[in-house]
Amino acid sequence: MIFAEQLTKSYRTKTEEVKALLSVDLNIPKGEMFGVIGPDGAGKTSLFRILTTLLLADSGTAVINGLDVVKDYAKIRQQIGYMPGRFSLYQDLTVEENLQFFATIFNTTIEENYSLIKDIYEQIAPFKDRRAGQLSGGMKQKLALSCALIHRPEVLFLDEPTTGVDAVSRKEFWQMLQKLKSDGLTILVSTPYMDEAEQCDRIALIQEGKILMNNTPENVKASFSDPLFAIRSNKMYQLLHDLRDDHLVQAAHIFGEDIHISSEVINQQVIIDALQAKGHTQIQLKQINPSIEDVFIKLLMHTESHEQHS
């Protein structure tokens, strides 16, 4: 349904050339929910804009539903829904007027496709006379999703739909996406948040324009081959430095309340003894399963740029 081969895009500024995408390949079958996971500036938005026919790649090809993004852009636009990262509805139109507007542009009516958006739109219907600019973050997202769906697209592109949205709205939003997926839509969604990645069928980890890994969440996690432990003690800040300075492990990163440590071999007793000798008490050490974030960190540690500035 979504196919990309060797997509490359760079932007020229006065002083330098910024590579936004470097030879990106994608192959997403119909009905899949595919996540693009990466930080700001990784190239996610450039990828979305090329696939939605809004930006031309420097080289490479992309095909959506059998249509070429350059030659067949007009046809593609009829078949896709796009929710850009920046809220892009008309702030001074009401909720209902916005929906009406997008329906009209696509030569359809709200009534004709209401079944598809019913569950989502009902949640914001009590505010249908309110101007879009006056809505909360969560409700803006629901309206934007309704507008992106009103012409019954086959593919949905969502660029960071939950950035700046609170945890409850975020959860509700992903429930809606799961529902749309079960209705047969193909969904490409980007997010900087690893917990959302878990909900996708497949994910691509992207950094500095390159896809570092492309697989199911399970296989991404399984690719972390070294033993991984979570450790804590009574002096956490000191613990981080002791683990690193004494080279007790190959990698030590703070992870919420714990520090995650990994090495090819982890001898628990050696680590505990060394830390006790340094005055740590209440040491807790337990083996854990890697998360997507653990894998991402490990991949990033191997990229050049981070070796330079860390």
Binding site: G38, P39, D40, A42, T163, G164, P192, M194, Q207, M236, Y237, L240, H253, I254, E293, F296, I297, L300, M301, H306, S310
Partner: peptide, 21 residues
């Protein structure tokens, strides 16, 4: 730290811990 990569985020939190320390 919304929207930054996992390593930069950790470097940032280490600065916060250091200041707290």
């Amino acid at each position: 730290t919304g929207g930054v990569d996992p390593i930069t985020r950790r470097e940032f939190w280490e600065m916060i811990y250091s200041a707290a320390n």
